[in-house]
Design a binder for these strands. Structure first.
Lengths: 215, 215
DNA sequence: TTTGAAGGTGAGTAATGACTCACTCACTGT
DNA sequence: ACAGTGAGTGAGTCATTACTCACCTTCAAA
């Protein structure tokens, strides 16, 4: 027979990606110490020996995962857009809904927590790419709006952390601690945004409308 | 010689507590899978065999730790007190400062996260005793204040989670991710409380003062 | 003085962990 | 036709792990 057309042998790159994917899922589920190389190999459908052909050590594989998972930017551009227009409501809603989303898988969050708890060397970088960007952006925006005179004068970094905190904590409860959500994602997001913005926006002196007010 | 007076042999109970303390510190630092029974024994200053005299398995020791660490109540009483007086500012400040405190050790937080991530069977109970109490209490208070007409009508549970989220996230950043705090504990707490309460309190219709306003 | 229970241990054991090695297989360029 | 090469593996090695067991020490009550 000419060739077993069923499965073309994957290239080196594909194998590596496959291993990373399989390992990421397992590390996220059970942590670094809780996952064995044998399991990873099995889950990726290869022999254990092959894992070590591609990654010299188990830790190197873990590091490759953390280094790989760098994403996000499309959101930040959109936020930038809304920032220019001073659309407070939109800026906050976008950030919140990015994290509170129907089908986010918890892999990244779990990896992040595990890596921080287990003190992995790349944990900081991972944190920087996945969380710090958010509150740095948000802090910058809040600072601008304070200078505009639109927000009350608060520490921008603290305020940004507070908001991100609401949202991240919500995910934590839901995805890690299994607390059920009793509201739709949209309602949750809008409640958080509303609560937070109301606390932040400076009232003109008199006259206040219950609805949204921007610029 | 009559007796080595230097070290009185500890009783069963004391040994057990010593083991639990030693193990708790190690599990908090490195997780369940990252900690060996040999390390625990060494840290408690006994032979490995003794560990198994007191706890049939390593998991049982872990379970004993989670079951042991149940505290808190003195705070809840104080909160109850402030609740009766409808002292919003105080209620929120007390809860926040309980968690954001100069010298809390991160052991409990780390144990909580590890146990949830590693999916330990007692994790739920641990979570219930250490976190759920807080936001259940707070949610109840918020509900009352909404009925009083003092707070805007929001979902009390969601609002409570939002506030606790700010605070817990702050600890997470600080204790787990090593993010430095650039403000004193007091300022941090008062910023959070101020932000949140301002967003929550219903404005009478006109007239607003920049300072605190309660009841 | 004996006894025996409680506190304690050194030296295992069986299983499992990460990692290695000698080797095969399938395909390609010459 | 066949050497070369990269993908892949079965069967290890050796250290470590959770857990066991036969035995020791102390001390108070009988």
């Amino acid at each position: 027979m000419p060739q077993t057309s069923r499965t073309v042998r994957p290239s080196s790159r594909e194998r590596q990606d496959g291993l990373i994917a399989a390992a990421a899922a397992l590390f996220a589920a059970k942590g670094f110490n809780g996952t064995t190389t044998k399991e990873i190999a099995k889950s990726a459908g290869v022999s254990e020996a092959l894992v070590f052909k591609y990654f010299p050590t188990k830790r190197a594989l873990y590091a490759a995962i953390l280094a790989e998972k760098v994403t996000v930017n499309e959101l930040l551009e959109a936020v930038e857009e809304a920032s220019k227009k001073r659309d407070d409501h939109r800026v906050f809603t976008m950030i919140a809904s990015y994290r509170i989303r129907p089908n986010v898988d918890s892999t990244l969050l779990r990896l992040l927590l595990f890596s921080a708890l287990e003190g992995h060397e790349l944990s900081d970088m991972f944190f920087g790419k996945h969380h710090k960007v958010f509150y740095d952006h948000l802090a910058a925006y809040i600072r601008t709006r304070i200078e505009d005179g639109a927000f009350r004068p608060v520490d921008p970094l603290l305020a940004a952390r507070a908001f991100i905190g609401m949202v991240v904590h919500h995910r934590l409860l839901h995805e890690i601690f299994g607390v059920p959500m009793h509201q739709s994602h949209e309602d949750t997001v809008s409640t958080y945004v509303d609560l937070f913005l109301t606390g932040l926006i400076k009232k003109p002196a008199s006259r206040q409308t219950p609805g949204r007010r921007a610029r």
